[in-house]
Design a binder for these strands. Structure first.
Lengths: 210, 210
DNA sequence: GTCTATAGGTTGATAGAC
DNA sequence: GTCTATCAACCTATAGAC
């Protein structure tokens, strides 16, 4: 029963777990090789550097997520509802049973200065473009900047939930249960969809007393 | 005209800037003392350790923010509107002209495992409690867990915006302008308020096809 | 309070035997 | 492919002169 995967996979698994738990900078290669019960030099043999290892850890998880996003959006037909679009956007990321993937992705999305060049321009740009198009078709009256802001807010709520998933139950006094991922996705989609349906703000109107 | 503040303030200012720019772990004390044009040993004289310095940098900015949050909530009277409550929650954090404060706070909120013990239980618990009460009075039919989740989503959208503020204009192709903070706050409050007003999800009802 | 000098430890990466 | 041993660079923190 396949007790010992190969060294390369063991390194990826341990790195994913520790990066998600403690962050990328705070996790040393020695921490990783100790957890993986693998020799230190194996990291630089299979991957060239810590930076490349980080990229490999992220790529392994983000590629299937993006694939599922497009699949779900396609499966919703030519005129998907707002809820279907948003579910295709947040669902594949949040609906993962591998507990270490979610915090890892949260760490990644919360550190833009480190990843915007190496990761986001490669993996997130096509996703953002495609989902902006779908949203624009469903909400044609919403200005593009407003649409972009709201997609960003939605991504923020999602990223924050992923970053905090390990401690959320504790800090919420048990009110927030992260383990029921189906309910979580429905909650977030309902919240975001309502925000998207707000008519665009008109600056002149807002000047009245708050 | 007060060209050179004292060493202690210079360290705090430089630390705030570099922590926000590159993160806490990635910023060394040497980076900070070089930026501040101050001797390395001065850090351990004025603060005892890097960890204490981080706490001091955060405390200096979060305390006035929390004070303003309570002031704004009090100023809204005994029955504040949902928009007034949310503005009091997100406004004081986002409405800061010091450009380094916003990314710093974003970094802090995005690293729960590091700060949940040292920072959040001290500074965020009373805020969370007070705003939960206010929200519950305004939305008495919303279950507490649902309310907590939505407050969390709102905080996530806010934290994400702060973390990304330095690169958001670039990655959005110029669509998102972070400099107009008044408009940003209105946008986020409108988005979140709509999400809060969604009736509580009833699990049984959701089982129909999406 | 501010400096120099340095202790003491950890890091990422590599050379070379097997 | 996997190991041991090690390097050079960097880190935080401190002792002690001024």
């Amino acid at each position: 029963m396949n007790e010992k995967p190969d060294t390369k996979s063991r390194i990826l698994d341990s790195a994913e777990k520790l990066f998600g738990l403690n962050g990328f900078e705070a996790t040393s290669l020695r921490d990783i090789t100790a957890e993986a019960q693998v020799n230190l030099a194996a990291v630089n043999y299979h991957f060239q550097s810590k930076e490349s290892l980080i990229d490999a850890v992220i790529a392994r998880r983000i590629e299937p997520v993006n694939r599922r996003r497009f699949e779900m959006l396609d499966a919703a037909g030519p005129h998907p509802s707002l809820e279907q679009i948003l579910t295709a956007f947040v669902g594949p990321l949040l609906d993962q049973d591998l507990s270490s993937v979610v915090p890892l992705m949260g760490r990644m999305m919360s550190d833009p200065t480190q990843f915007v060049e190496r990761v986001f321009k490669k993996y997130l740009t096509p996703v953002s473009r495609r989902f902006q198009e779908a949203l624009h078709e469903e909400l044609p009256d919403l200005p593009r900047s407003e649409l972009m802001w709201r997609l960003f807010f939605t991504g923020g709520a999602m990223a924050h939930t992923m970053s905090w998933s390990q401690v959320l139950s504790e800090v919420s006094g048990g009110l927030c249960d992260v383990t029921d991922r189906g309910a979580l996705i429905e909650r977030l989609v309902a919240f975001a969809a309502a925000g998207f349906r707000v008519p665009a703000l008109e600056p002149a109107v807002m000047k009245g007393k708050g």
